[in-house]
């Protein structure tokens, strides 16, 4: 594999040295593909359901999806380890420079890729440029018949037609924990809060936390051998590390 420094791309090589802030480690060996994370994400983040036809056209709004691939043919057929795929919160994100409205911007403070819904004009350039295919576009104003809106999370904006959306690493939970810690005059503790997907995961296959803190659980898990980030050769510097067991 060619690294970015070998490709003589100094700006990316520089970025590569910068650690992100928040990150995830996903153990595919114990992920069972049960979809608890997908449901938890939808409930936490007010994600609309689109119905049978639109989901058939690939318009389902999953911010996280479980990929599975087939290897071999019957009877030697094997289902590969399930791969939860969500926004990788790239350190050098391909979605960001293509947005004409600065709706897809980088948060320097949190090292996250933000999506500012009220700036988004729906060009979908970001989704086209995302190598991980994790952005979801509101093709319609998807209806939630009464009284379903009672369930909506007041901490998360409800998106309307023409707006792009994606996984935010549950930024509302990040801010809530930081506000709470600040009010109590302390730092946010590791494990004090987590994302909806990691919280639900019955196998604890998803672990979330500070990757810039070497003491955090996620940093320690990340240091094990065998971890990989997806499409590393593109120089996107993802903050999600996958382990495939074996």
């Amino acid at each position: 594999m060619t690294t970015s420094s070998e490709l003589n791309m100094p700006e990316i090589a520089m970025a590569e040295k910068e650690a992100g802030k928040w990150g995830m480690v996903i153990d595919q060996d114990i992920c069972t593909g049960c979809q608890a994370c997908v449901a938890a994400c939808a409930m936490e983040n007010n994600i609309a359901f689109v119905g049978e036809e639109d989901s058939g056209y690939g318009r389902a709004m999953h911010w996280i999806r479980i990929e599975r691939f087939w290897e071999g043919e019957y009877p030697e057929v094997k289902m590969t380890n399930q791969q939860p795929m969500m926004c990788q919160q790239c350190g050098s994100a391909p979605c960001e420079p293509v947005c004409p409205a600065f709706a897809t911007v980088h948060s320097m403070a949190e090292s996250l890729n933000l999506q500012v819904y009220n700036r988004c004009v729906g060009t979908r350039y970001c989704a086209n440029n995302c190598p991980y295919q994790v952005r979801a576009f509101n093709w319609r104003d998807y209806k939630r018949p009464e009284p379903l809106p009672n369930q909506l999370n007041p901490d998360v904006t409800v998106r309307r037609v023409g707006v792009m959306e994606k996984c935010t690493f549950c930024i509302q939970r990040i801010f809530k924990a930081q506000d709470q810690a600040k009010a109590e005059g302390r730092e946010v503790m590791d494990g004090e809060f987590t994302t909806a997907c990691a919280q639900a995961c019955p196998a604890s296959a998803i672990v979330f936390g500070r990757v810039d803190d070497p003491q955090s659980l996620v940093s320690q898990l990340k240091e094990r051998s065998g971890g990989k980030t997806h499409l590393k050769e593109l120089g996107t510097l993802p903050n999600v590390t996958y382990f495939n067991g074996g």
Binding site: C34, Q35, A36, V38, A39, A40, A42, M43, E44, P147, L148, P149, N150, Q151, L152, N153, P154, A196, Q199, A200, C201, P202, S204
Partner: peptide, 28 residues
């Protein structure tokens, strides 16, 4: 607004399945 597992419950130790998450879509 949201269901989470009860972390001190000996059976599920804070975890839920997808159906537990979606129980709110039954309520509302």
């Amino acid at each position: 607004i949201k269901t989470e597992g009860n972390a001190s419950h000996p059976l599920n130790l804070g975890k839920t399945c997808a159906r537990g998450q979606a129980t709110l879509h039954g309520l509302y």
